[in-house]
Nucleic acid binder design. Structure first.
Length: 735
DNA sequence: TTAGGGTTAG
């Protein structure tokens, strides 16, 4: 520590008889506090002050307590101990009480400032215009409406409610606890309508979702400053009205108000959501030109903006350039990869994060669990669960536990998902929805519907997402009557307007049951145009029921909507093949070749020892390629010995050499299973994830493989889960 | 001697 070159002479003052403030205030030892940035330096300064005898003055003691209580490099408990050391003197000093109350209002337990306040009153001291703002801030932070109202009454009694700072903090308090009417009343009662009180009220309106009312108030502000503009821009962002946030920023520029760093942070969020790359680039230059190039908050916001705009390399460059990354930098970058579905990159970066000794938090795991769920990386998901149990057990972030439920469900462990779900203390609607759709995905219709009744009985009001889960459950199990019942109930009992997804489930459900006429009637009732998925599910059903003519009609619609959807052409040609119309099969094939279209390649992944292994049809790129194909030969031999007859009805996939799809036996899921068989111990469950629906031939083969090799095989396809065990599949061949 | 409004990642 740098000491003053000429130590001052030792002063002896008797307690309670302070010399004039100006003498003390200018004392060099006391001035050291302005440079003090940690509690240890403070303690050194404190000892120096004791040596000089200065500590006997109430003024100096109050300065010390104030520093400890309020400064970010202070220590509130140390302030309290300094206070109690000399309580008899200190209890009569309002400045000290105000400092302690302020300190508590900044702490993690702001409500404790009210205890100090009542102690202060007990000693006969009255609050002043400095005390009230701290107290109201505490109430605002702690959402203590009742206490806030009592304090409001106290301020009225002392007639200081119209003091500008007190007045604004009352408005802010009411706005923060959601009592907008009171906030408005206080605002209207006063002739003081400055930009600060306007802004406090505007923030209240925004927090309750009334952004248009906030805007009307904003327009009334006679002289707007940068803070009020920022409040309005962030109001639009918080309401998800990103375009308007950007428009508001341009208005601010026209009004010739210079933006600050907060403006840019908020604006970057709007740029990310709207993909406004140009404005984003402009802000990037602004950040550099205004000397904020090394500002962490802005750099993190830039990383977020660039990754949301799809410029992941630029984002990564910025990220790599940060010397001291904080947890938000890591989370933003991981979240960026996750947002762009670059899940493997997200997981790789997460490993680097752990090696860099940065402690992940709940937000980190939201991104990581999402990636695990997508990739089916159960082992990593389990590790995350163990980590959370150990380090974040007390997290009251319901989304975190819900993400775990979702991860387990999507990685095929529906029982583990349910165990986590049952352990959540405060379940929200999203938790119920995650569990419900998990059960539906696994084909556990009865359990899903029982869970639905349970959530309704517990007072949760189902939303549109809940009903997607309920209807999916009915669809996967072919429960036509129940599906229709829930669809009606959604509209009539819960007033939810069916969306495309709900119609999709219902049309799929009806068509799979062969009820084509009812499906058509429902389609005519729709308020919106059916999408490709709906026509696609109808086309699949046409194939299953051999409905050639209707299939042609449906395919026509689908071709108009998605001319590049090669899968639709394949499906139609399979319908022709099923009816023996080989000329039509050839015609479709020519059309496909003329258009030069490529079917989305089937891709299956399997995670072994934390590594994601991906296989395409006839893939020869895997390092273990030779052993995999040896195992595949063995599998095919055993399948044949056990009476397996390949299903050739979907033969088009494999007949056309130009499609380079390889033989049926080399479908990606079989390659992944073969790799699973050679890389895991006998009896271990094999988990695979496929990007498309599992094909009929592979489904039959996998059933038999599960029996021959005595393995449980859990496969996730684009639509649902298949649990293969002992020769049968949990979907009962209905998918 | 202190004080009011906006301001990171999902």
């Amino acid at each position: 520590m740098l000491l003053p070159s000429n130590p001052p002479s030792i002063l002896h003052f008797l307690p309670g008889s302070d010399p004039p403030y100006n003498i003390l205030e200018q004392h060099p030892y006391l001035n050291l506090l302005t440079k003090c940035n940690n509690i240890n330096t403070f303690k050194q300064i404190h000892s120096l002050i004791i040596k000089t005898g200065l500590h006997n003055t109430v003024f100096v003691q109050s300065k010390l307590i104030h520093f400890c209580a309020v400064s970010s490099s202070g220590d509130l408990s140390y302030a309290l101990s300094l206070f109690s050391e000399n309580q008899n003197q200190h209890k009569h000093n309002r400045f000290i009480w105000n400092s302690l109350i302020r300190g508590h209002s900044l702490s993690s337990s702001p409500i404790s400032s009210l205890d100090l306040f009542s102690r202060m009153l007990c000693y006969g001291l009255q609050p002043n215009s400095h005390t009230f703002p701290f107290l109201f801030k505490s109430c605002a932070k702690a959402k203590a409406t009742h206490e806030g109202k009592q304090l409001h009454a106290h301020a009225l009694k002392l007639s200081i409610q119209f003091h500008p700072h007190v007045h604004t903090s009352i408005i802010h308090m009411y706005a923060s606890v959601g009592e907008l009417d009171f906030a408005r009343l206080v605002f209207d009662k006063s002739s003081l309508r400055d930009v600060v009180s306007f802004t406090a009220l505007i923030t209240g309106y925004v927090s309750q979702g009334y952004v248009d009312d906030a805007r009307r108030l904003f327009d009334e502000i006679p002289t707007k400053d940068v803070v009020s503009w920022n409040a309005m821009i962030s109001g639009y962002v918080l309401s998800g009205r990103f375009e308007e946030a950007i428009a508001c920023f341009y208005e601010m520029q026209e009004a010739k108000i210079l933006p600050d760093k907060s403006t840019m942070v908020t604006l970057l969020s709007a740029c990310g959501h709207t993909g406004s790359r140009e404005l984003g680039n402009w802000i990037c230059s602004w950040v550099r030109d205004n000397g904020f190039g090394s500002n962490l908050q802005l750099t993190n916001a830039l990383i977020d903006m660039y990754s949301k705009c799809g410029e992941i390399d630029t984002a990564r460059e910025l990220f790599d350039g940060i010397v001291e990354k904080d947890v938000i930098s890591w989370n933003t970058m991981i979240g960026g990869y996750s947002y762009l579905s670059l899940y493997e990159e997200a997981l790789t970066l997460f490993e680097v994060m752990l090696r860099s000794n940065v402690k992940p938090n709940d937000v980190t795991f939201l991104g990581i669990l999402h990636a695990c769920a997508y990739l089916g990386a159960l082992d990593l998901g389990k590790w995350v669960h163990a980590y959370i149990d150990k380090n974040l057990k007390s997290s009251n972030n319901a989304s975190l536990w819900t993400s775990l439920v979702d991860m387990y469900a999507k990685c095929g462990s529906i029982e583990a998902a349910e165990r986590v779900f049952r352990s959540i203390h405060s379940r929200n609607l999203a938790s119920w929805n995650a569990m419900l759709s998990g059960l539906a995905m696994h084909g556990h219709a009865e359990r899903a519907l029982a869970l639905f009744s349970e959530m309704v009985n517990k007072g949760f009001r189902p939303d549109d997402i809940t009903f997607v889960g309920v209807l999916t459950a009915c669809t996967q199990a072919g429960l036509v009557d129940l599906g229709q019942h829930y669809f009606r109930s959604m509209i009539q009992d819960y007033g939810i307007c069916p969306k495309l997804e709900h119609y999709g489930c219902m049309i799929d459900l009806l068509a799979r049951a062969g009820k084509f006429e009812e499906a058509e009637i429902l389609m005519k009732d729709m308020e919106m145009e059916p999408d490709g998925a709906i026509w696609g599910s109808l086309l699949s059903a046409c194939k299953a029921y051999g409905r050639v003519e209707f299939g042609e009609y449906v395919a026509d619609r689908l071709f108009q909507l998605e001319p590049e959807n090669a899968g639709a052409f394949v499906l139609l040609s399979n319908i022709y093949a099923g009816a023996g119309r080989w000329d039509d099969v050839a015609r479709i094939r020519t059309r496909l070749n003329d258009k030069g279209m490529k079917k989305v390649p089937g891709c299956t992944s399997i995670v072994i020892d934390g590594v994601v292994n991906e296989f395409l049809v006839g893939d020869k790129f895997h390092p273990e390629c030779k052993s995999i194909y040896r195992m595949l030969d063995e599998v095919d031999k055993l399948l044949e010995e056990n009476g397996f007859i390949p299903d050739t009805s979907e033969v088009l996939y494999d007949m056309d050499e130009e499609w380079k799809e390889g033989a049926l036996s080399q479908h990606s899921e079989k390659l992944a299973i073969a790799f699973g068989l050679i890389s895991t111990k006998p009896g271990t469950t094999i988990r695979i994830v496929k990007n498309l629906r599992v094909c009929g031939n592979c489904h039959s083969a996998t059933k038999l493989i599960s029996k021959i090799f005595n393995r449980e095989i859990i496969a996730r396809d684009r639509n649902r889960f298949h649990h293969f065990k002992n020769g049968v599949c949990s979907c009962n061949d209905f998918w």
